[in-house]
Amino acid sequence: MSAKKSPEELKGIFEKYAAKEGDPNQLSKEELKLLLQTEFPSLLKGPSTLDELFEELDKNGDGEVSFEEFQVLVKKISQ
């Protein structure tokens, strides 16, 4: 996936994966893993990378990643 996506496209991608289980407005760690493996495969170099990335993105510590938290990752990789 190209990092150059419109905000609407990014929101659609986020919602597609977030709706798989639990809260449709939040990504669980498994949903984030699936999204990254599919859309940004070069970001995941191993299991520790996912854990570190999830911890970094989950700013409020609720165990899930909101769209706002996800946007931090998108901004970081599009620079």
Rank of each mutant, 00 (worst) to 15 (best):
G63T: 07
D23V: 06
L57V: 06
P7M: 14
E21V: 07
D58A: 04
A3E: 05
K5V: 04
K16V: 02
D51V: 09
Q71C: 05
E30Q: 14
L32V: 06
K33R: 11
D58V: 07
E30V: 15
D58L: 14
E52P: 08
D58S: 13
A18C: 02
K11N: 09
K11E: 07
E8C: 01
E9C: 03
K16F: 05
L36S: 01
K33N: 10
F70C: 03
P47W: 10
L73V: 10
E21N: 13
I77D: 03
S48I: 12
K5R: 03
E69A: 08
L43S: 13
S28I: 01
P41G: 11
I77N: 09
I13W: 02
K29S: 11
K75Q: 04
P7A: 10
T49I: 10
E68F: 07
E55G: 12
F54D: 13
K16S: 08
F54T: 13
K59G: 15
F40V: 06
F14M: 00
S6V: 02
F14T: 00
L73C: 15
P24N: 09
G46Q: 11
E31K: 11
A19L: 12
T38I: 11
G46W: 05
L53T: 13
K29L: 11
L10G: 00
L73R: 01
F14R: 00
Q71R: 05
D58M: 09
K76H: 03
S28L: 02
E55A: 08
G12D: 15
E64T: 15
K45P: 11
V72Y: 07
A3P: 04
K45M: 11
P41I: 13
E56P: 15
L32H: 00
F14W: 05
I13M: 14
F67R: 03
L44G: 08
T49S: 12
K11T: 02
K4M: 09
L73S: 02
K75G: 10
E68N: 08
L73W: 12
F67E: 07
D62S: 14
L34W: 10
Q71E: 15
L43Q: 13
K4F: 11
L10P: 01
P24K: 14
Q37R: 11
E9Q: 14
Q71N: 07
S48C: 03
E15V: 08
L27Y: 00
A18P: 00
S66V: 11
Q71L: 13
Y17F: 11
T49W: 06
K11M: 03
S42A: 10
K59V: 15
M1F: 02
E64F: 07
E56Q: 07
E8N: 04
L50N: 05
F67G: 03
Q79M: 13
E9P: 02
F54L: 14
E31G: 12
K76S: 04
P47C: 14
A18R: 03
S66R: 08
K11A: 03
K16E: 04
F40T: 04
D62H: 08
F70T: 03
K29N: 15
G22E: 03
T38H: 08
L43E: 15
D23N: 10
M1I: 13
L32E: 00
S6N: 03
T49L: 07
G12W: 05
S6M: 04
I77R: 02
P41Y: 08
S42L: 06
S48G: 08
E64G: 14
Q79K: 14
K11C: 02
L53R: 09
G22M: 02
F14H: 00
S48H: 09
E31Q: 15
L10Q: 05
P24F: 02
I13V: 04
D58G: 12
E30W: 06
E69Q: 12
L36A: 05
L50V: 15
L44M: 07
E31S: 11
F70I: 01
E64S: 11
E52H: 14
V72F: 09
F40M: 14
S28Y: 01
L10R: 01
K59S: 12
S6E: 03
L43N: 05
V74T: 13
L10T: 03
I77A: 03
T49V: 07
I77G: 04
L73A: 04
E39M: 03
V74K: 14
E52D: 07
M1G: 01
D51Y: 03
L44Q: 08
I77L: 06
E64C: 13
F67P: 02
L32A: 13
V65S: 04
Q71P: 02
S42F: 07
G63D: 11
G61S: 12
P47S: 15
E52N: 11
N25E: 10
K29M: 07
L36Q: 00
E31A: 04
D62P: 09
L36D: 00
P24G: 09
F14Q: 00
L50A: 08
L35S: 02
E8W: 02
E15H: 12
K33T: 14
N25Q: 06
D58T: 12
K11L: 05
K4T: 14
E31T: 03
L44F: 11
K16R: 05
L35W: 01
D62Y: 02
G63Q: 06
E30P: 13
G22T: 02
E55Y: 14
K33E: 09
G61M: 09
F54R: 05
P7R: 06
F67Y: 09
L73N: 01
N60Y: 09
N25I: 13
P24S: 14
I13K: 03
L34E: 14
Q37G: 11
Q79I: 01
K45D: 15
G46I: 11
A18W: 01
K29V: 13
A19N: 10
E68R: 08
L27E: 00
K45C: 06
L35T: 03
E56A: 08
E69C: 06
T49E: 09
L73E: 02
E52W: 05
E9G: 04
L50Y: 13
G46V: 10
S6I: 04
P41R: 07
L50E: 12
L43V: 14
Q26N: 08
K5E: 04
K59N: 12
K5N: 07
N25L: 15
V72P: 10
Q26A: 07
P7H: 06
T38D: 15
L36E: 00
L53A: 14
T38M: 08
G46T: 12
Q26V: 05
T38V: 12
K75C: 03
G63I: 04
E39A: 01
D51I: 05
S78Q: 01
S6D: 06
L10N: 01
F14S: 00
D58N: 07
E31R: 06
E9F: 04
V72N: 10
E52G: 13
P47Q: 14
I77P: 03
P47I: 08
L34C: 08
K20Y: 04
L32F: 08
G61W: 09
E56M: 08
N25T: 11
K75D: 07
V72S: 08
P7F: 06
F14G: 00
K29H: 14
